[in-house]
Design a protein around this nucleic acid. Sequence first.
DNA 1: ATAAAGCTTATAGCTACTGGAAGGTCAAGC
DNA 2: GCTTGACCTTCCAGTAGCTATAAGCTTTAT
Lengths: 138, 138
Amino acid sequence: MNIGEAAKLTGLSDKTLRYYESIGLVSAKRSSNGYRLYTDKQIDELHFLASARQTGFTLDECKALLALLRDTNRHSRDVKAFVTDKLMKLDSQIAALSKMKQSLEQLSSRCNDNDDSQCAIIEGLSSNTLCSKEENNE
Amino acid sequence: MNIGEAAKLTGLSDKTLRYYESIGLVSAKRSSNGYRLYTDKQIDELHFLASARQTGFTLDECKALLALLRDTNRHSRDVKAFVTDKLMKLDSQIAALSKMKQSLEQLSSRCNDNDDSQCAIIEGLSSNTLCSKEENNE
DNA sequence: ATAAAGCTTATAGCTACTGGAAGGTCAAGC
DNA sequence: GCTTGACCTTCCAGTAGCTATAAGCTTTAT
């Protein structure tokens, strides 16, 4: 099938499919007029990629996962190890964002929220307490 | 002071300071030899930017915050509104990551973690259950 | 005098695409 | 035969927030 239909089936855009080909993920054969021709197996692979991307894997990680998908001699142990590693990365991302959130909430709670120019948020960001040291418990 | 000292004081790299100038955040005057000269006030602003970046604000958001910092006629209300908005964005980012984590954990728990090629993770990513519909509660 | 450190600009690369321009191909309608 | 529109092609630029590299100038120390 042509790229348009492949895009519809997989939920990826045609641009994305061309991009994936350009980085060597899924390369379609061409018909005589130069149009890309996707096989059913490639559609499956693209589905797989879409799922993996949605689940938070980077394209580099997707490349590795795709290699595992294609390797019928893979061991589920290796796949699991890969995912366990990714889970740790996700955890640290979540922790970083949570820390930011906490800092912001703390600053925000001290802001008077009125017409005054004086503002605890501005002051908090201006002081170096955020970057240089732990917050002192109040 | 020159860019090197400014970098040391603020914890930002000299590259970063030049970049910030190139996008119009903090522009230093030049001495006769063409070297950048940072004032104490600019060091304060750079500290502020470093804090804001650490707290998760994008550079675009930092630009807006810097405008508030510089505006002595600001209202703390406006700063608070800005931060409240950012907190919501942080929340949705955290929610997205948590969802990914949950999906991955679910897949991972079903993997046999052995020598077999059969793997619930690969199968889960291949099926379209992740993208097309809600997970059915088990 | 020379070498090292510090500064300058300009360019390219990273992630994962997206948008747009300029143009070839195909199927339908008149 | 011709046009119109949909679909396809390639290539270039832009997004965010820097970092790395290169080529070259200035200052400082030896």
